[in-house]
């Protein structure tokens, strides 16, 4: 077994357990991303870590209230940025695989009260998909042991990362509902890699809301 980042051989103990879990991928001690799980008080709307339990500035500005709330697993620190860059821009599909267990647990901790939940990953545009060949939101959703339904499609837009906050808030909704889909009855949790301004998630929630879904939450890897 080799480290997913630097490819040095990992000295793993061969035990009965390790034989059981075949193909377990991991990072070496040096490359292990120093992620911080969000704990303590958070913004009730967007799930950002806050000194007190009140809405953050961004969320106070927001008027529409379609999304019930967002919850995220990790602080969006440098290590987390690097890890997501490895996955999204270096196209390393398995960069997040070592976190699988933690992501699943993190989801359950936030949303175990929801019954009959359906995961909806935020889609990629076809152009981006052809470049990356996988959708990181689908990848994260697939790590959570709940039914997943890709309900949405996306028009091609410029990269969000190159836009200012103002520009992002002003953009038109790039999402639209897939045709011929039977909408699930229970609550929906949108899945994405990172919640920055929340525009993406709120756009997606809007589309689902107009389609007649009442209970919409979201879960992202980082905030």
């Amino acid at each position: 077994m080799k480290c997913l980042n630097c490819l040095t051989e990992l000295d793993t103990l061969v035990s009965w357990q390790s034989i059981g879990q075949k193909n377990s991928l991991a990072y070496c001690a040096d490359c292990q991303p120093k992620l911080e799980i969000i704990t303590g008080t958070i913004c009730p709307d967007c799930g950002r870590g806050m000194p007190t339990r009140e809405r953050c500035g961004d969320c106070q500005e927001r008027v529409t209230k379609i999304l019930s709330y967002n919850r995220s697993l990790y602080h969006y620190n440098d290590a987390c940025k690097q890890l997501l860059a490895l996955c999204k821009y270096r196209y390393h599909y398995h960069a997040l695989t070592p976190l699988k267990q933690e992501i699943h647990q993190g989801f359950l901790q936030q949303y175990c009260q929801l019954k009959k939940v359906t995961l909806v990953p935020i889609p990629l545009s076809t152009e981006r998909m052809e470049e990356r060949l996988f959708n990181q939101a689908t990848l994260i959703a697939s790590m959570i042991n709940r039914p997943m339904l890709p309900l949405l499609h996306k028009h091609h837009t410029d990269k969000q990362a190159h836009k200012s906050r103002k520009e992002r808030l002003d953009t038109v909704n790039p999402f639209f509902l897939k045709e011929g889909q039977v909408l699930p009855k229970g609550p929906i949790v949108l899945i994405d890699d990172v919640y920055t301004t929340g525009t993406t998630i709120h756009h997606a929630a809007n589309v689902l809301h107009h389609a007649g879904i009442t209970e919409i939450y979201s879960f992202t890897l980082a905030r």
């Binding site: 077994m1 080799k2 490819l7 991928l25 599909y93 398995h94 990629l124 998909m129 052809e130 990356r132 060949l133 996988f134 959708n135």
Partner: peptide, 10 residues
């Protein structure tokens, strides 16, 4: 061990 599989979206 240096080849990893993934579901190709294309």
């Amino acid at each position: 061990t240096l080849f990893l599989f993934f579901p190709c979206g294309k």
